[in-house]
Design a protein around this nucleic acid. Structure first.
Lengths: 142, 142
DNA sequence: TTATAATAAATTGAATTCAATTAAATTGAA
DNA sequence: TTCAATTTAATTGAATTCAATTTATTATAA
């Protein structure tokens, strides 16, 4: 127990958070690859599946990502024909993204993914619920 | 409650994990920048501060990172004079990394960082402990 | 109205991250 | 021993991620 203990890997909270996040995304990848999606593209599509359309700004607020990250992601999704990008008619600054029929159709196949991921997260109901709540409490502090 | 609910962002566990990890690293950055370190370099230095030396392979096992990530990180740390890279005398395949006096000296300044980060993680003792345990339970499943 | 401020995307550059491959060294089995 | 398999790093290329800057547009205040 010396003054340097606070710098030990095993005493960190951020490190397992960071390692878990990367590890889980890695488990998503083979399933997402079947749909031709990366993880970042997948969470963006989640928003479009739910809302149909969304501005780039609003998407960034939901995903905690900025335009430097989203610009290439959205261009890629448009390239695949899953969304359509266009300027807002009332505000030229705003990029509006709208899901296409092809994008909607992909939801049919994506719906199988959560079940495929479930065995990768072997937690009790209580643990899952607590983890979910604590993570959102942390997110609210950012 | 339809069949697509499992694809809603708000029903995901991976997403808040991923967002929290990025958010926390972002809070580390200004403090780490004062030491001239990135987050990845910081967690690598944590291992060297604790162990003094380590093979690249063992470091990767501890950090859940592979040589594609670590090779440039370790070259950068050597460039800064914080570690020294060299081949094992008994096995030429193995890259051994050893901390330098300058690397050890940096620990004196790094020791202030955890206290600076504490206000960014406003959880109860119970929440922190549960989060820590659940994350390590998840890591053990990878 | 007009100049200034604020907002939204895009761009740029540095650093990660990972999958896949390559190269070199070591191990192990025939 | 010798050759095939394994192990360890390094390399390559694609995609993120973010800080910082730039550009274009809109809002606001004098």
């Amino acid at each position: 127990m010396d003054k340097y203990d606070c710098l030990k890997l095993e005493n960190q909270l951020c490190f397992p958070l960071y390692a878990c996040a990367r590890g889980l995304v890695k488990k998503y990848n083979p399933h997402l690859a079947e749909l031709g999606l990366t993880y970042t593209q997948y969470i963006a599509m989640m928003v479009f599946w739910e809302k149909g359309s969304c501005s780039a700004k609003a998407l960034g607020d939901l995903l905690y990502l900025d335009s430097g990250t989203l610009t290439p992601v959205l261009k890629s999704l448009e390239q695949k024909g899953l969304v359509k990008r266009g300027r807002s008619s009332t505000d030229e600054r705003v990029l509006m993204i709208e899901i296409t029929a092809q994008g909607k159709a992909l939801q049919e196949r994506a719906v199988a993914i959560p079940a495929k991921m479930a065995p990768c997260v072997n937690l009790t109901t209580e643990e899952s619920k607590n983890l979910y709540q604590t993570l959102h409490k942390l997110l609210a502090q950012m």
